[in-house]
């Protein structure tokens, strides 16, 4: 039973769908960099607001812009993963 399950998993992983799924999983690793970037952005923005509460509006709008750019890489990773899995 265990052997047949392992056999099935190996057959799946070496099939076209299995390799595509592994590729999609690797593409989702872009989330790692984007997560670090967004964390640094938000942390620095909070630091800036704590240091200068008057500039909160300006800091927030430029933080949103930075977050949008950081998020873009994660969205590209998701897009590549979806393209691999759906096509």
């Amino acid at each position: 039973m265990v052997l047949s399950v392992i056999n099935a998993v190996v057959v799946f992983l070496t099939s076209v769908e299995g390799l595509a799924a592994i590729g999609a999983g690797i593409a989702a690793f872009t989330g790692l960099g984007a997560g670090i970037a967004m964390g640094i952005t938000a942390g620095k923005a909070v630091e800036g607001i704590a240091r200068q509460p008057d500039a909160e509006k300006k800091i927030r709008s430029s933080m949103m812009l930075g977050l949008a750019f950081a998020e873009t890489t994660a969205i590209y990773g998701v897009l590549v993963a979806i393209l691999i899995m759906v096509m």
Binding site: N7, A8, V9, V11, F12, S15, E17, G18
Partner: peptide, 10 residues
Amino acid sequence: MSGNLVTILS
């Protein structure tokens, strides 16, 4: 068996 797994996982 493997065909079944493919339909479940993908």
